[in-house]
């Protein structure tokens, strides 16, 4: 990725990637809220955000398809950076230190750390499952083509996957707030060199490799 690096910052995400990410994020949030509204009565009031309960039920699947498309673009772009390596296993085992901001002695992290990789694969799994089960339970268009037991199973799976992915994304959002500078990566597209060196030394080496001066 031949990017221009300024002296103090490194490009991490291109504008199209950021746009793609934020489309996925926004649609995910809408999906999460509209889904949770139908999930438990305590959150039913979320439906007012979408123009009433019926509109919530109508919009949710369409937004779901949009999210799936944009997420699959995202996944297609980044799946090469998310292969788990041995270092990642070690990193995971020392998750206790990671959580307590003690980063010394942690194995070298490439572009994404093990947590991010794990989240990546769970998202691929759950979102595709969400789409599949979503279509099975999509009334009035597709649900009547499926026998009732499949529809029941799909409803359960849809809820479980949604739960998993929502918890995952909460962690994802928190991590961005917790690790200062991360948000900037996805908002402006650049990170400070110190950030890169501290959090993603492996990736930092690769990116600054061409700049020998």
């Amino acid at each position: 990725m031949t990017t221009r690096h300024s002296p103090r910052s490194i490009d991490r995400y291109s504008p199209s990637e950021r746009l793609n990410h934020w489309i996925t994020a926004i649609t995910f949030l809408m999906l999460a809220f509209s889904g949770l509204a139908l999930f438990h009565p305590s959150m039913f009031w979320f439906t007012q955000v979408f123009g009433g309960p019926t509109w919530t039920r109508i919009l949710h699947p369409y937004i779901g398809v949009v999210m799936f498309v944009s997420f699959s673009l995202l996944a297609f772009k980044f799946w090469r950076h998310n292969f788990l390596t041995r270092n990642d296993i070690v990193w995971l085992r020392r998750i206790g230190d990671v959580v307590r901001n003690r980063e010394e002695g942690l194995p070298e992290v490439d572009r994404y750390n093990a947590g991010q990789k794990l989240l990546f694969w769970t998202m691929i799994g759950t979102i595709s499952l969400l789409l599949l089960t979503g279509i099975v339970i999509w009334r009035p268009w597709f649900a009547h083509y499926f026998p009732i037991d499949i529809v029941r199973l799909a409803l359960l799976l849809h809820a479980v996957c949604a739960f998993v992915i929502i918890c995952g994304i909460i962690v994802h959002i928190y991590a961005a707030i917790w690790i200062k500078g991360t948000l900037g990566a996805m908002v402006r597209g650049t990170v400070t060199r110190a950030w890169a060196r501290k959090h993603h030394p492996g990736w930092y080496k690769q990116v600054t490799e061409g700049e020998k001066h």
Binding site: I173, Y174, I177, W178, K180, G181, T192
Partner: peptide, 18 residues
């Protein structure tokens, strides 16, 4: 997440690292 942030606090990269 919130409690973690309040207890462990954010993970910043200081100037001297720069």
């Amino acid at each position: 997440g919130f409690f973690h942030y309040v207890t462990v606090g954010p993970n910043e990269t200081e100037e001297e690292d720069e």
